[in-house]
Design a binder for these strands. Structure first.
Ligand SMILES: [Zn+2]
Length: 325
DNA sequence: CGAGTTTGACCTGCGC
DNA sequence: GCGCAGGTCAAACTCG
């Protein structure tokens, strides 16, 4: 069972960020610094691409150099992010081991419904990798569902105007029910896996009460088959990584500097980055590449970024053509 | 026509 | 035992 929702840069508008400014001073400083880095790169990108009208080759070379430098900076940023993430993961594992000892002494929560209610109380905390110890402990102490059955929670950023509760995760799902729950105005949809005839996996999808742009998908059970992601991944390795991008759910919103990475393993459940990072350094490299791909796919989705890139490319192409003529 | 979705009815577990 | 809430079923419906 893995619940991962990484919010590396908390939305400055979120109540969490506002209400905990003092106590989270340390981490917010780091965040600001990182935000600054992101904004700086964005500014540079638009600045360096804005003079695409020039068709002189020294200018192009200069521009190319600048882009190479920017590329290096972005890679460095990714490396920093990755390192921070690994540190957070270590913290999680350390606290989890402590928590395990505590819960073994306290006993397991007996009332199922009570447990679910409490779980939703902690829902907004799950989305935040907080460095505050008290919040972090609350996050860790939230009641879990039956530890034996595989239950995982996935948070997916989705446009609030889109009423569909579809979470693309590499499996085929058949909807078998929908219910309006007591404490959330948005309905909860029930799905069964239809990728394989005997697959027992179910999932529930509901919009987060706190943030309607986030869909909370709860998976139960283990797939008795592979998803098409797995096929794709094996194809990728055969093709030397030239296949299509790893279909993870990742969104980056430059406007509010929020990074949300939903890390779905090919079996449809979460695979913690720790699982990649703790084993081999080669695995860490794979994870790093994985992060880069997520970033790239997210940037591709951003129309503004796509526009800038398209402009730059067309500028270059037109520039080359006019140079030849 | 088959597969998937919708939606009201029904089932089940929990709290009082 | 009753009522409530979450979860599931299945007939009707939609869509390709
Ligand atoms: Zn399945």
């Amino acid at each position: 069972m893995m619940d991962i929702f990484l919010d590396l840069n908390v939305d400055p508008n979120s109540s969490y960020a506002n209400s905990t400014m003092d106590e989270a001073h340390h981490s917010s400083q780091k965040r600001d610094q990182f935000d600054g880095e992101i904004y700086g790169v964005q500014e540079k990108l638009s600045l360096s691409l804005s003079n695409k009208g020039s068709d002189s080759s020294p200018m192009l070379e200069q521009e190319l150099d600048r882009k190479i430098q920017e590329n290096g900076k972005l890679s460095q940023m990714l490396r920093i992010m990755y390192e921070k993430y690994i540190n957070l993961q270590k913290q999680v594992m350390y606290l989890l081991s402590n928590q395990k000892q505590n819960t073994e002494m306290e006993g397991v929560c007996s009332r199922k419904r009570k447990a679910e209610g409490d779980q939703e109380d902690y829902e907004n905390l799950e989305g935040i990798c907080s460095t505050r110890d008290e919040d972090f402990n609350r996050w860790l102490k939230r009641p879990r569902l039956n530890g034996n059955s595989k239950v995982s929670k996935v948070f997916v950023q989705k446009d609030a105007s889109d009423p569909s509760l579809v979470v693309k995760d590499g499996y085929q799902w058949r909807k078998y029910g929908q219910k309006v729950t007591r404490d959330n105005p948005s309905p909860r949809a029930y799905f069964k896996c239809s990728s394989a005839p005997n697959c027992p996996v179910k999932k529930k999808v509901q919009r987060s009460l706190e943030d309607p742009t986030i869909l909370v998908a709860t998976y139960e059970g283990e797939h008795s088959h592979a998803s098409h992601f797995q096929t794709e991944l094996s194809l990728r390795s055969i093709n030397g990584g030239k296949g299509s991008a790893v279909p993870v759910l990742a969104t980056i919103k430059p406007s509010c500097a929020t990074v949300t990475l939903d890390l779905i393993h090919e079996d449809g459940l979460f695979k913690s980055p720790k699982d990649y990072a703790s084993s081999e350094s080669a695995e860490a490299a794979v994870w790093q590449e994985f992060l880069v791909q997520q970033m790239a796919s997210s940037l591709k989705k951003d129309p503004e970024f796509a526009g800038i890139v398209a402009g730059a490319i067309s500028g270059k192409v037109l520039g080359n053509q006019t140079n030849r003529e």
